[in-house]
Design a protein around this nucleic acid. Sequence first.
DNA 1: CACAACCTTAACCTATACTTAACATTCATC
DNA 2: GATGAATGTTAAGTATAGGTTAAGGTTGTG
Lengths: 226, 226
Amino acid sequence: MEKNNFKILVVDDEPDIVEFIAYNLKKEGYDVCTANDGLDGIKIAEKEKPDLIILDIMMPRLDGVETCEHLRRNPMFKNTLIVFLTALGDEQSEIKGLNAGADDYIVKPIKPKLLLSRVNALLRRLQPTETVGKNQIGDFIIDMEQYLVHYKTEHYSLPRKEFELLNLLTSKPGKVFHRDDILNKVWGTEVIVGDRTIDVHIRKLRQRFGDEHIVTVKGIGYKFDS
Amino acid sequence: MEKNNFKILVVDDEPDIVEFIAYNLKKEGYDVCTANDGLDGIKIAEKEKPDLIILDIMMPRLDGVETCEHLRRNPMFKNTLIVFLTALGDEQSEIKGLNAGADDYIVKPIKPKLLLSRVNALLRRLQPTETVGKNQIGDFIIDMEQYLVHYKTEHYSLPRKEFELLNLLTSKPGKVFHRDDILNKVWGTEVIVGDRTIDVHIRKLRQRFGDEHIVTVKGIGYKFDS
DNA sequence: CACAACCTTAACCTATACTTAACATTCATC
DNA sequence: GATGAATGTTAAGTATAGGTTAAGGTTGTG
């Protein structure tokens, strides 16, 4: 039921609406956190680093549009998806919202299924490489359907964690994945494993394919290099 | 007013609507091509490889939803944005459309400004990696994603503190960073280190790249100069 | 139920990034 | 040009992240 461990922050000053949205998102398998105004939302966003933020526009202290603009100024949230939620259905508000840097604009009253469809559609884009299919990188072909790795004419059937780790690293060759990110994406947020666990799996991959492909970046994480 | 040379394909069986949309997109600076039904749309999409496709739902031969599903089956269009355009404003149709793999769903009648805002919002996301994480200053390219520094054809993998220090200084070339600021941003507020620590790291950078790039401003701090 | 495959942990080891301390040098000011 | 504060330099010490190994635990399968 886990939905790729995406984290969503819901910001609205009406507790009923927050709870209603949170309930539906959780049911869909998302990791949800909440806040009840703009300032609070920014604080929690900085702490939780959500993948998507649902922002009510009309809120006390700091309204949704201002919150969005503030978030977008911070490079940390450059890739965070932002969805406005509002009772204002007029064209001008919607244009203003989207131009403020939002990715979508949903009009109240909230229809749960529609909300989920839109949220799913947005998050689908976040990791376009992790979808089902085949991914070719250098001498590697990662076959996600069969959990198989083809490497220089040979093909290997890796254990799940090893495969997912390799798949993550090869999804963006060259990019350094932070240890935290690796834990989140391969192990999930619920399970807490020791520090050495990642190393052991990295080691197994290196044993199989040679040391040259996975590069350690000390203090940060690992990257795949071809 | 060139808009990153994004290419948009507009598919609708009503020529007036196609022309109306194409006109507005071109005015915004997009490269536009058109088709007048689903089958035609697929053919042109394969040839033109657009970044975004606007699909009418009700069309002869092959309707929008079927066209979308067909496109999504082809890996070539895995990352292509698809927007449905329709007179059907009901919730069920919208959910069905989004679940078929579309990225957005816009209800007729078309409001040009709103359409553009939504199209802009979608395309804003398309290539976030090309600008994010890379910072070019003179002969330097700081690649935050790969934790690499490219300098005059060579590329270096720096230790963490060195990298972060260089990254800070190059983030605003010419600006003098106070020693206190450097300590806060690179070392954080919790750790307290001696005065000479900064100097030592500055020295390492100067050893690597030459003395000319990092300038000491006595009594204040350091700045990067190109 | 037994076995195998896999995952996680703990303990230890290693390498290197980081810090420090001691001394040298610069540079502005008198 | 002497003086002192700020910065440069060097090498040595320390801390820490990551590597390695084997053992114990978990899971799934016949």
